[in-house]
């Protein structure tokens, strides 16, 4: 019979004091979060209903949203973005899981070496990485055309970033190299934390390597997988810097992404309201994708 005891006056005062202290500790972060995340989000939502530019600020209801879905370039950007997500997220997840499965068993120094290799593009910075890739893709002096030409695979030089058929795949390739670093580090850590006694017990019971992976390791690294899926999805949806630095959305809008188009509308054409409306739609799409991932992967995680 657990009967909850009523707190005395002294206990109430102590609880109140601790609660106040806790809120005081939270306050700076809360101010920061509200000021730099919540308020801009609300402003973005509100101004998406306005014809908001450098010279105008007039309420237009859902006009920006209606225009958006009649805007062929926005539709193209949406499809390109979805293509990037659909290709990049599974490839990044599977590739990083495969690499991690191989290297996490290696001795400390070798494992650290590989982690550094895969993490290098992340810490190098997008601009530096992009400059190198731009040189490799260069039609006239680039590495790809040189190697493929010398080996007789291609007859004439290809403008990798200037051809509609290849540009988006070049962007995805660069995105993959800059995206696998964090998942590899996370997976190596997660696999290293899998309970060895469970693996040994399964092996004693005659489980194969495949069974050990899927029945023992996979369920235990599921929270990490869920995190990687969500983060990679968000990063892929927000692909902007590569486009800005390499293609400006071309050729013929074949690499236009929603993030780049938002930037273009807001900062080049000064159509802040229209850009914000696209930002709202992008946020909704990301939320839906993330919710689906939580639902599917989270259920297995339970």
């Amino acid at each position: 019979m657990n009967k909850r005891m009523k707190p005395t006056g002294m206990q109430k005062a102590l609880i109140r004091r601790e609660t106040i202290s806790a809120y005081l500790f939270l306050l700076p972060a809360l101010i920061f979060f509200v000021g730099f995340v919540i308020v801009p989000m609300v402003m973005c939502l509100v101004t998406s209903f306005f014809n908001y530019s450098m010279t105008e600020f007039a309420f237009v209801g859902f006009s920006n949203y209606v225009e958006m879905f009649q805007d062929e370039i926005f539709i193209r950007a949406l499809l390109n973005t979805i293509l990037i997500v659909v290709v990049a997220v599974p490839v990044v997840t599977v590739f990083s899981l495969w690499v991690s499965s191989v290297i996490y068993k290696m001795n400390g120094a070798v494992c650290s070496f590989f982690r550094c290799i895969f993490y290098l593009p992340v810490v190098t910075g997008t601009v530096a990485v992009t400059v190198v890739w731009k040189w490799m893709f260069n039609r006239y002096t680039g590495l790809f055309n040189y190697v493929l030409g010398e080996t007789g695979i291609i007859d004439s030089d290809i403008s990798w970033l200037g051809d509609e058929r290849t540009a988006i795949w070049c962007i995805i390739l660069i995105l993959l190299t800059t995206s696998v670093g964090q998942p590899v580090v996370l997976y190596v850590s997660a696999l290293g934390n899998v309970d060895e006694s469970l693996i040994e017990a399964a092996q004693v019971d005659g489980a194969t390597s495949r069974q050990v992976f899927w029945k023992i390791k996979w369920p235990q690294i599921m929270p990490t997988t869920l995190y990687i899926l969500v983060i990679t999805t968000i990063n892929s949806f927000q692909c902007y810097a590569l486009i800005q630095l390499l293609t400006s959305g071309g050729p013929n809008h074949s690499t236009e992404t929603i993030m780049y188009y938002i930037y273009y509308q807001a900062f080049r054409l000064y159509r802040y309201g229209y850009g914000n409306a696209m930002g709202v739609i992008l946020a909704i799409i990301i939320a839906v994708f993330s919710a689906i991932q939580f639902k599917v992967a989270g259920r297995k995680n339970d």
Partner: peptide, 19 residues
């Protein structure tokens, strides 16, 4: 023609004698 180049890239190719 090259849809992957802007003026700065073209200038660099000119400067190194490629074009």
């Amino acid at each position: 023609h090259d849809a992957g180049l802007q003026a700065a890239d073209e200038l660099q190719l000119f400067a190194n004698g490629t074009v």
